[in-house]
Design a protein around this nucleic acid. Sequence first.
DNA 1: CGGGATCCCCGACGATACTG
DNA 2: CAGTATCGTCGGGGATCCCG
Lengths: 108, 108
Amino acid sequence: MVLLDLLGRRMALRILWELSKAQAPLTFRALQEAAETNPSVLNARLGELRDADVVEHDGEGYRLAAQGRSLVTVIRPLHAWAERWASRSGKESATASQLAIGKRARRK
Amino acid sequence: MVLLDLLGRRMALRILWELSKAQAPLTFRALQEAAETNPSVLNARLGELRDADVVEHDGEGYRLAAQGRSLVTVIRPLHAWAERWASRSGKESATASQLAIGKRARRK
DNA sequence: CGGGATCCCCGACGATACTG
DNA sequence: CAGTATCGTCGGGGATCCCG
């Protein structure tokens, strides 16, 4: 589906997240470090996010576009759900997954 | 991330979607056809969704569990965003992506 | 009908070197 | 510093067969 096509990729949400935390635009390298990823993936994601009008690039660096900000808004509840979900009933964990936004847990 | 770990897989959302549309529980085969997928993937997803307490299985078939229903609730806004996004500015499309819930668009 | 077992393949990702 | 190019790998997903 279109939606996951954009957000389901490796660093998409993470990038959104980092940008939403940043007060000022982030440079390519800054983002790279913040998101703990490598140039190729970062570049790929930025490309997609950019022409989805979710992220924009001005002289200073990358920042959320209007679309991106509204997206973050709508994502937050999901995120909240995920937190509740992560720390549900039996299953322990919930420790490292507090933020639930990051790299896809490497499955064994 | 945990969240995408569950929902980012190939038929996860699609399954949720189909189940949320169904009034009665769906059988394995019914789901398989509804979601247009194959046994292996369906089975994999059902397993994950089931032990995430998002989907449950009674004698009649599969249905959303409480968690699942709340998830659908929280997903809906996202879905709405995706629709607006899909039919934004320049880019045409928006035709096949109306529902925006389905298989990951084969890129090429 | 439910669903486990196999097999194969392709594409996403990771690392890293390189250019402007 | 920004971004591109290259290459190898690894795992998820598709198809299918088949058994209880």
